[in-house]
Design a protein around this nucleic acid. Structure first.
Lengths: 186, 186
DNA sequence: GTCTATAGCTAGATAGAC
DNA sequence: GTCTATCTAGCTATAGAC
């Protein structure tokens, strides 16, 4: 075997950028290979099932990052909930590169993507909602309020990312993250 | 000349559905032709500059609809602002088919689309914000609040559309429209 | 494990009959 | 104005050398 040219992490990182910015159909194998610093055939060696498997790997990688840096933080009952919330929201800022990166759910939820990833997107969103609902309860919100705040948190993140991109103004996203925090902690 | 087979309105309607649901790259000429009840070559007769011109026509058509059914309503100073707002929000519900339809800005704002439509999306969003800012002032909000409410209105619409689609639950969108209304009129 | 080369197909777009 | 037929370029994916 020839030596491994690109590290797995670099490959996934490149694929993530392409899928996030171009969507599933918009991402060509040529784009993906270039971003991964590999030739197309080498990508197929690592992902024998092709493009779908590459996107699955990206989703899994992001899911693991979010689990570690958002969900586990929010669920860490050894820390005060106010601190957990602040840290988690900071990490959400990192996840979306301060408003410069599109959410993968959005990128993969155009029609063709919905058929392939619809279930994963739905399940993923439900976990986000459940985790924010839980921290809301720990912050002494009523069950109804906790549910509403959790939904509004996701709406704010997704909506502000779209506006930030459309207006070319990442400040909208950063401001929205602050609003989310203030809503819980006021 | 042979008789016109499909009315302009039906053609635009078909193209709109395809671009909205599949995005710019995801929409193939075959998809577009089928939805327009025409063959590919006939589409090119109506849109000599191809796919880009078709998407431009869809954008222009939606813009005109929004102008008439949202912006003009909100700006109609012969009616009380409370009534204008309610009517405009109802029409936004119609525009997005109660949460079933994706916003065209979102569908066209993946990377390839941003290069082609970025300016139109930015300009379009700015008009939305300006119009909602104006109605906020008429409803006696402070200038700062009017600006914030207008931004939040767009964030809520875009975000709730994404959640509605991702979760397969249009109720989230309908609920959010009510929240927008209540925020202004409380 | 990475590469060059290429198969097989579909994309966007065009020519020309009617 | 609509159609069938076709072009070229790009797509996803594979074969096989190293």
């Amino acid at each position: 075997m020839r030596p491994q040219k690109a590290l797995d992490k670099e490959v996934i990182s490149g694929l993530t950028k392409v899928f996030s910015s171009k969507g599933y159909e918009g991402a060509s194998l040529q784009d993906l290979a270039t971003a991964a610093s590999l030739k197309k055939a080498s990508l197929y060696h690592r992902f024998p099932n092709g493009k779908k498997e590459m996107a699955d790997a990206v989703l899994a990688h992001l899911q693991a990052w979010v689990q570690e840096n958002v969900f586990d933080i929010l669920n860490d009952t050894h820390t005060k909930p106010e601190v957990r919330l602040k840290t988690a929201i900071e990490n959400i800022g990192v996840l979306y590169d301060g408003g410069n990166r599109t959410c993968i759910f959005r990128a993969l939820s155009m029609e063709a993507g919905m058929e392939l990833f619809g279930q994963q997107i739905e399940d993923g969103m439900k976990v986000w909602i459940a985790v924010f609902e839980k921290i809301g309860l720990e912050l002494k919100l009523s069950p109804k309020q906790a549910k509403e705040y959790a939904l509004q948190t996701l709406i704010d993140i997704q909506g502000s990312l779209i506006l930030a991109r459309g207006l070319g103004n990442t400040g909208i996203f950063e401001k929205t993250l602050m609003n989310i925090s203030n809503r819980y902690l006021k």
